[in-house]
C-alpha cells in the first residue's frame, strides 16, 4: 500500500508537468486549430535566456521573469512572422509550418550557441525534495501541479470575465463571425500566443529543474508528451489538456511501477497502446467537446 501511494504521488507530480505542457498547446489549438510544435523550441529558448542571464550575474527572481517576457515576445513574433501568412490554410500546412519553425530554431541554437548542453544554474529550492514519510516528491513537481491548477483557474477567469477573453471564446467558436462583430483577429491570436509563451517559459523552468541543463534538442520530448496529452484529453479543450496530462503521467508511472521485468523494454510501446485504447473508446478524447473555449 505504501508503495502504491508513493507511486501515486509520482504519477500526480509527473502528470502535473505534462498538464502544464499540454495547456500551452491547447491555448493556441483552441483558437487556431494549430498544434504548435515550435512550443518545445520556445521552452529551449527560455532555458538559454536563463543561461545568459546567469552569465550576466542576474539573480533568479530577475532572470525567471526575463525568460518569461522574452519567450512571450518570441511567441508573438513567431505568430507574426511564420503563422500569420498561412492563417486559414489547411491544417497540414500549419502543422508543417510549425515543424519548420521548430527545426529552424533548433538549428539556430546549435549553430549560434552550442551543440553541447549548457548548465542552467537554478536556486536550490527548485531542485529540492519534500519528504512525505514513505516517499519524497520534488519541489518542482509540487510547483508544477499547483501552477497547472492556478493557470487553469486564471485562464478560465480571464476567458469568462474580460472582453479579450470573451473575444477569444467567440473566436474559438466562429472566427469569421467574430471578426464581423468588429473584434480584431490579430489581437486575439497574439494574445493566445503570448499565453502559450508564458506557459512554455514556466514549464521550461520546472522541466530544467529536473535535468539541470539546456541543449538545442531539449524541447523535443516535452512537446511530444504535450501533444499526446492534449490528444488524450480532447484537442482544443483546456480542461481536457490538464486531465490528459494527469492521465498520461499516471499511465507512464503505473506501467513503470507494475509491469513485469520482461515487459519493461516495451514500456513506451505499451504506454502509447493504452493511449490508443482510450482514443478508440473516446475518439474525441476525455473531455469530448473540441470547442471548450466557445462554451
Amino acid at each position: 500500500m505504501a508503495y502504491f501511494l508513493a507511486q501515486s504521488g509520482n504519477a500526480l507530480s509527473l502528470g502535473g508537468i505534462y498538464a502544464l505542457l499540454a495547456l500551452g498547446l491547447a491555448v493556441v489549438y483552441s483558437i487556431l486549430g494549430l498544434i504548435n510544435f515550435a512550443h518545445g523550441a520556445l521552452m529551449t529558448l527560455a532555458g538559454y535566456v536563463l543561461v545568459f542571464a546567469a552569465v550576466l550575474g542576474l539573480p533568479f527572481y530577475l532572470s525567471a521573469p526575463l525568460a518569461i517576457l522574452v519567450v512571450m515576445a518570441s511567441a508573438v513574433l513567431l505568430e507574426r512572422i511564420a503563422f500569420r501568412p498561412v492563417r486559414g490554410a489547411s491544417g497540414a500546412t500549419m502543422l508543417l509550418t510549425s515543424f519548420a519553425v521548430a527545426v529552424l530554431l533548433q538549428l539556430a541554437f546549435q549553430l549560434f550557441i552550442s551543440t553541447r548542453p549548457q548548465v542552467v544554474p537554478l536556486p536550490d529550492f527548485l531542485t529540492a525534495t519534500v519528504d512525505l514519510g514513505s516517499f519524497a516528491i520534488g519541489v518542482n513537481r509540487v510547483i508544477s501541479v499547483v501552477v497547472a491548477v492556478v493557470v487553469l483557474i486564471a485562464l478560465n477567469l480571464f476567458l469568462k470575465r474580460t472582453v479579450l477573453g470573451l473575444a477569444m471564446r467567440a473566436a474559438a467558436d466562429d472566427f469569421n463571425v467574430t471578426r464581423l462583430m468588429g473584434i480584431r483577429a490579430n489581437r486575439v491570436i497574439a494574445t493566445a500566443f503570448a499565453l502559450s509563451g508564458l506557459l512554455a517559459a514556466v514549464a521550461a523552468v520546472l522541466w530544467i529543474a529536473q535535468r539541470s541543463s539546456v541543449d538545442p534538442m531539449m524541447g523535443l520530448v516535452p512537446v511530444l508528451k504535450a501533444f499526446i496529452a492534449t490528444t488524450l484529453g480532447g484537442l482544443g479543450s483546456l480542461l481536457g489538456a490538464v486531465l490528459g496530462g494527469l492521465l498520461l503521467g499516471a499511465i507512464e508511472i503505473y506501467l513503470a511501477a507494475y509491469l513485469p521485468d520482461a515487459a519493461l523494454p516495451f514500456h513506451g510501446a505499451i504506454t502509447l497502446g493504452v493511449v490508443i485504447l482510450v482514443l478508440v473508446v473516446r475518439p474525441q478524447g476525455l473531455v469530448g467537446a473540441s470547442r471548450e473555449l466557445g462554451k
Binding site: 508503495y3 508513493a6 507511486q7 509520482n10 507530480s13 509527473l14 508537468i17 516517499f135 516528491i137 520534488g138 522541466w207 529536473q210 535535468r211 523535443l220 520530448v221 516535452p222 508528451k225 507512464e252 508511472i253 513503470a256 511501477a257 521485468d261 519493461l264 523494454p265 514500456h267 513506451g268
Partner: peptide, 20 residues
C-alpha cells in the same frame, strides 16, 4: 535492474522501486 528510455524526463517510478 530498472530499464529507462533515453530522454525520459522522470525517474520517480524507478527510484521508488529501488527505495523499496
Amino acid at each position: 535492474e530498472s530499464l529507462y528510455s533515453l530522454g525520459q524526463p522522470d525517474f520517480s517510478a524507478e527510484v521508488t522501486k529501488i527505495k523499496e
